[in-house]
Design a protein around this nucleic acid. Structure first.
Lengths: 255, 255
DNA sequence: CAGTGGTCTAGACCACTTC
DNA sequence: AAGTGGTCTAGACCACTGA
């Protein structure tokens, strides 16, 4: 039972475990196996596909990690009842985003202040300690058009090298991305009217609807940075997609 | 070399492949292994951990699927250069969302029309065919407070059972979720001022900033439904998070 | 207590890609 | 041509847990 032939019609150049995964996923997504249904135990799939247990185990483990099935010892594996209510949100680099629109990207530093954290800073950074921070305001432009207003706080304790950067050429986001391997990032997305300050910079009327993305980035050493991005009006859209395993993207969370 | 002892200090009840994964992930996320760096080949990790090749292979495969490393035959495995610019967006059921706020959820059907698709419908549904559609407008409430205005188109060809549903009790989203195992969903998120209609229903001033989530759902048989959710003002936030493998969420996106 | 999944081994052959 | 990853096998022991 070594070296299967791999040339049977339809098995077109795809690995066995991939074929099993597609089979099962199709049955689930088509509704043939409804939510809550018990799916064959490993032993049965082994017989059905004439393969070893490792192979089907790999498939079922992957489906379970993707939330498509649930596995319980002794009980068996079941089609998940909760549809995977999640999608992968792509958060492109702003420069890449502007370039993708076919516009020339530029960046302008508006303010750079080094100071001790205020109470408000600490709330945004989700930390209790009084720490030195770098407050940065800048704007990103698509051609001559303001594209995004950025307000950022950097925890100087976490990134001491930041104080030597003037951020006149390189945007702080891009610099941090190279500098700090971040571990965890929380995003909050909401809609709000432009503040007077943001309106002035983005050259829009105050209270114009804006898409606001706030991101708190943590690394091993604690909170690294907080950033608030204000995108004017309806100019901007975030895109997220949900796709089952391996249809389009190589993997839900990647790239 | 069977049954390792598993009681060495620090190996606290965690599987070997999990421990290897944590080790490598920590080295990468801490910056000790910088982007682009070649990581030990499987053979070396096998020696280092005194385990079989399957075990390290499993770990590296998982890291590769998560986009943390890249693998190339003959060349080796490398720390990924592109930081995973993605996050998992949780898209809760509206009912669950309201309940999470501690408010009583209710739902009200405002309109239900069956007709042939207009040109505009087809644009929203991303289809060329002239198809019968169901147009539904409804609102979701938190207590007495309007929470969300929903505009929906359902492709009757894809879900013929929909015509028999009056959606007076069950929200169309919840019904579809049970009915149709969806395969692919694209989301677009933007900010815009409330339309006069949405403002009237949500009891807010026209042009008040709203968070708008549009979702196009496709299944095996083609586009199933388009939905536009309008959340009033700053009442609502979407939350997304990026976490490396296995820290908090059940599955980062998968894997 | 027996069925099921979770993990691991010590091999093996193959495909691909760079050297 | 040789190194590397990709896949697969035929076992094994164990942990958990529901019947």
């Amino acid at each position: 039972m070594t070296g299967r032939v791999m040339t049977r019609k339809g098995s077109a150049n795809v690995s066995l475990h991939r074929r099993i995964l597609n089979d099962i996923q199709r049955k689930i997504l088509s509704g043939e196996w409804e939510p809550g249904r018990r799916i064959p135990v490993e032993h049965e799939l082994v017989q059905q596909y004439g393969c070893s247990r490792m192979t089907v185990s790999k498939v079922l483990t992957q489906l379970a990690q993707a939330g498509i099935i649930e596995r319980r010892r002794k009980a068996g594996s079941f089609v998940s009842r909760l549809h995977s209510q999640s999608a992968v949100l792509s958060i492109p680099d702003i420069k890449a985003e502007v370039s993708a629109l076919g516009q020339p990207y530029s960046f302008q530093l508006l303010q750079r202040v080094r100071r001790r954290s205020t109470r408000e800073d600490r709330a945004l950074l989700a930390t209790q300690d009084s720490i030195p921070v770098l407050e940065i305001q800048c704007q990103h432009l698509a051609g001559a058009q303001p594209f995004c207003f950025e307000y950022r706080l950097i925890n100087v304790h976490a990134v001491p090298e930041a104080v030597e950067q003037d951020f006149s050429q390189l945007a702080p986001g891009a610099w941090l991305l190279r500098q700090v391997p971040w571990i965890h990032a929380d995003h909050r997305i909401r809609s709000a009217g432009a503040t007077p300050e943001a309106a002035r910079i983005l050259k829009i009327m105050p209270r114009t609807p804006c898409l606001i993305v706030e991101r708190l980035t943590r690394a091993a050493k604690g909170t690294v940075t907080f950033v608030r991005l204000t995108y004017p009006g309806t100019m901007h859209e975030l895109v997220a997609s949900f796709t089952p395993l391996g249809a389009g993207s190589p993997s839900p969370p990647s790239v």
